[in-house]
Amino acid sequence: MTASTTRWFPNSMPAPIVDHHTLPWWQACAEHKLTAQRCTHCNHAQIPPAPICSECHGNSFEMTELSGKGTLYTYTAVYQPIAMEQTLPFFIAIVELDVSGTSCANSVRLMTNMVDCEESELQIGKPVQVAWESMSQYVSIPRFRFC
């Protein structure tokens, strides 16, 4: 596990609520590995992981590690706190993740946060990369920053 100590969000942020299928994705996050669930039959990639592949209905998967690079797809600056001692505004973003160098057949997007930037710097299409925030020994959250 990376010994990163940078914090952007308080502990009072909602923690992940997981089921049998999504837990492996969050467990990989705890090790600072950004993954996609890849169907071993047709290579379709999906986040969050699901019981079956939405394309071929196969149920054999591998968690494929991604580069952590991507581009900003859309964003919003939120001015309402949803946790105590939260810095406002905070930025919810969707990032289109780079799957080059993997066997994934498609790129896949992730809902996340942009950090280490001003609202005026947010621009759709700009390259970003993952920035891990360790909330506890169990939970790390993949945020993103501009490259």
């Binding site: 942020m13 992940p16 609520i17 997981v18 999504t22 969050p48 939120v78 946790a83 809902m111 996340t112």
Partner: peptide
């Protein structure tokens, strides 16, 4: 499960 995947990012 669906909400629990995005709530950690403040999507509420």
């Amino acid at each position: 499960a669906a909400m629990g995947q995005v709530m950690p990012f403040g999507m509420l």
